[in-house]
Write a protein that binds this DNA or RNA. Structure first.
Lengths: 221, 221
DNA sequence: CCTACCGATCGGTAGG
DNA sequence: CCTACCGATCGGTAGG
């Protein structure tokens, strides 16, 4: 019964972090390593330092546990601020800055891709609407601010611009994760900058491009 | 013992297709629907119309069965020819034609993405080197032919050009699969053409681009 | 190619 | 929050 002055009174002494947090973290690590069906509740409980039955005091079932992991560990919480923090005197500079910041953020979360894959394949995308409902409005606002920094942009629907930028970035990240080190050695170290450059200016030399697909021209049903 | 003239003599009458083929097909359908750990050998056997034990006469184990499915059902067998069949009078036209042909091919195989996801997450990418060893040389040759159709291309390392083109295309396909119909309604019907157009000419208006990141400028270690 | 079986493990719950 | 248990199912194999 010795007094421990610096410890605030608690009804139950918490071991390390909150049990729910430890479960979430263990589940996250196992899910991204082995997938949803490849991770058992028993193993998750063990890695969280808790008995199997105890997990069900915090989460009603395995599916709900994954949903919680997906929404709490999805890196959009870091990626959106990265875009919001980007800026520059021209649209070009702002786009380049955003890509750099996104890459730096993603390099701390290489397992994010796995989280998305599990969601799409094993959960059949049931959590995607909830995720995009949070992401898309914020992303849209951030992109608008980024591209409003100057004129000089071709006339594109903002959703298309946004989707193309996000696609360009993630296609770089995903291929970087999938290709072997030997294959990646064939790429220059500034490949991301070149991706951004293609996004900004294209692969065709200036003044050489053919007719733009204006409205009324081309396949149109 | 009635004579059946049109049936060639066989030691064992094959029910429908070859048993190995039926197993492969059942495994493919189940894997892409529920993932690797979410598909049992029992269920695969049942869907193939065979007893569990019979599967092991054709495949030594579950992992090897997935490997066989992955390599035999991967749509690169259709995607590469689609690129090889593309052409045009200018690089622009050839790139547009390739994208169109790829999209038409992919629309017949919407589950291909799942196959790749399972490979990356649940199989830890162990079959990727074998796959890329087959794909990359053929893809490289096809892209070279495509871009040799005319000049007018900016000076880019061919692997970067190839990776950016493939990334542009698949980022379109994957987002098309992940976004909800309501979200997709915000995009114009010619969004793929616009993706290709950004790939060709960029998002920045002509004559407005800033200094290109020439060698010697920018972060370089 | 099937039947019958192996030990192991699954998600989940009762009861305390 | 744990112990002990439920029925179901897992990948794989023996033996024919």
């Amino acid at each position: 019964m010795a007094r421990r002055p610096t410890v605030p009174p608690r009804s139950t002494p918490p071991r390390q972090a909150d049990a729910a947090q430890r479960i979430l973290n263990a589940a996250y690590r196992l899910f991204v390593a082995h997938g949803y069906h490849g991770s058992s509740m028993r193993r998750i409980a063990a890695e969280a330092g808790i008995a199997l039955g105890g997990v069900y005091n915090h989460f009603p079932g395995k599916r709900q546990l994954f949903t919680a992991v997906f929404l709490e560990y999805h890196p959009y919480r870091e990626l959106i601020p990265a875009i919001e923090a980007a800026g520059g005197n021209t649209v070009e500079a702002a786009v380049r800055d955003a890509a750099e910041r996104l890459l730096a953020t993603m390099h701390g979360r290489p397992d994010f891709i796995n989280l998305m894959f599990i969601e799409v394949v094993e959960m059949h995308g049931e959590n995607l609407p909830a995720l995009f409902a949070v992401i898309l409005p914020r992303l849209s606002t951030a992109m608008q601010r980024l591209t409003a920094a100057g004129s000089g942009l071709r006339d594109l629907p903002p959703p298309v611009f946004m989707r193309a930028f996000v696609g360009m970035f993630f296609s770089y990240v995903i291929t970087e994760q999938m290709l072997s080190p030997e294959t990646l050695a064939a790429f220059p170290p500034d490949t991301l900058e070149r991706f951004v450059d293609i996004f900004l200016h294209g692969v065709v030399e200036d003044g050489k491009q053919g007719p733009l697909p204006a409205a009324g021209i081309g396949p149109q049903r």
